[in-house]
Amino acid sequence: MKTITQTYLLLAASAALVAGAASADPFTQADLDRWKAEYMTSVEKGEKLFHGGLKSKNTVSCDQCHPNATNIHPETYPKFQQQLGKVAVLGEMINWCIMNPLESDPLALDDPDMVDLQSYIHWERRGVPLAPGKH
């Protein structure tokens, strides 16, 4: 976030100084490559957490029931979960599965592990159109 803001500021400043220069792209290919790499690192961490890396009190792991993160449907969130009695975000259902099949302690919604799990889950689902609220 910070990097992006700084880049914008710099670009705005240089655009103002060099009047008449063709409007520059606000970020470079090198930026894109780095951002993608950062994301893929998170995907890889998430993939490991999902396949047994997450601390699980009973040894059960996500991939046992969700091979390739199937049947997680991240594109349908937020959605109403009857048993939770409310519209929930993906992280809340991840925690539900951590507390029940894994019999373990839930993660804070902004825990880095929670973020990495979601990076992996979304990556396996890439290309599927958004379908918020769908069951």
């Binding site: 046992q64 029931c65 969700h66 091979p67 390739n68 199937t70 049947n71 099949p101 396996e124 689902r125 890439r126 290309g127 599927v128």
Partner: peptide, 12 residues
């Protein structure tokens, strides 16, 4: 023990 998704639900 537990059910599995059908393979068709893996989109890749």
């Amino acid at each position: 023990a537990w059910p599995w998704p059908y393979p068709s639900s893996y989109k890749q």
